[in-house]
Design a protein around this nucleic acid. Structure first.
Length: 286
DNA sequence: ACCCAGGCGGGCG
DNA sequence: CGCCCGCATGGG
């Protein structure tokens, strides 16, 4: 089985840090298993976060998954040394990047990202995971290998578009159920999310904001993790709290002011700064 | 029991 | 534009 040499790659932090993978993958013993299209993929990292080898352990099902896909999903071409040098310009970020060395942003399918962050709003990580798992169980399709059902795929937009709000509700999605159905319909009938891939960040965000249940924060999450726009800076309660505490001496700031601050400070790498700020800030301020 | 969570839409001034 | 409110639900 071929392996990928890695530097500054922590599968654990990348998995855990509240990105779409954390919502539908399983992680144990430096091994991650998740549905990719109509395959179940399992990958394993040997070594440590400083230097390791990343193996594709198994791809069971009809969808191809190889080294190129692994590199893309985990953004293994990003030079973390350079990124750290650029974003860790103060003690807090220096500590964040040292403590969580190897935490990567992930590059996810736009629809997976959209559904994941629709569920995430006004919610907590554990429950996001619970709801996504239920949606997969109820609306995903069976992944069959060697005549056996070995898992469920991430639910397609069409599947949720044709579901009733009540059935989505039963998965625990609550008031988000209507957002999910409406946006699933929109993505099935009105646009193809993949067609937005060529747009620049501003145009992309504008288009994403058209979707029901997608506001400023969720649009930035989709731009960052579904389209790889590293200048996107999603501002949730923890980012707001952390930025106010660390950079503004606990003074309240508006979302607009925080966007301006992030753009000036981290520019094209604001998204990476945000991921470290979020994860470190959440543990630090709790 | 009470409080909160990777926010958003709607209604108001 | 800004502000305020309600929103389901499971875990601490």
């Amino acid at each position: 089985m071929e392996g990928i040499r890695t530097r500054d790659f922590s599968l654990k932090y990348t998995f855990e840090s509240a990105q779409p993978l954390s919502f539908y993958a399983d992680f144990e013993g430096n091994e991650i298993t998740f549905p990719y299209g109509h395959s179940m993929v399992s990958l394993k990292l040997e070594g440590d976060s400083k230097s390791g080898i990343f193996y594709i352990k198994g791809v069971r099902g009809d969808t191809k998954f190889g080294v190129a896909e692994a590199k893309r999903i985990f953004r293994l071409k990003d030079d973390m040394g350079k990124i750290y040098k650029s974003i860790a310009s103060d003690p807090f970020m220096a500590e964040a990047t040292q403590r969580y060395v190897g935490m990567r942003l992930t590059f996810n399918d736009p629809w997976i990202t959209t559904l994941s962050f629709l569920v995430s709003q006004f919610n907590n990580i554990k429950r996001i995971r619970l709801i996504i798992k239920r949606l997969m169980d109820r609306f995903g399709s069976e992944i069959v290998y060697d005549g056996k059902v070995i898992g469920k795929s991430f639910p397609e937009a069409q599947s949720l578009a044709s579901a009733s709000i009540q059935d989505i509700w039963k998965c625990g999605a609550g008031f988000r159920s209507e957002y999910i159905k409406t946006t699933a319909e929109y993505c099935t009938n009105n646009i193809n999310l993949h067609d937005l891939m060529g747009k620049n960040y501003e145009k992309l965000k504008e288009a994403l904001l058209e979707m029901r249940g997608v506001g400023d924060k969720v649009a930035d999450c989709i731009a960052l993790m579904g389209y790889g726009k590293l200048e996107a800076f999603p501002i949730d309660t923890w980012i707001k709290r952390t930025v106010e505490n660390i950079y503004f001496n606990k003074r309240k700031k508006t979302i607009k002011e925080i966007h301006k601050f992030a753009e000036e400070r981290w520019d094209g790498l604001a998204g990476y700064a945000q991921q470290y700020l979020y994860w470190h800030g959440m543990h630090y301020l709790r």
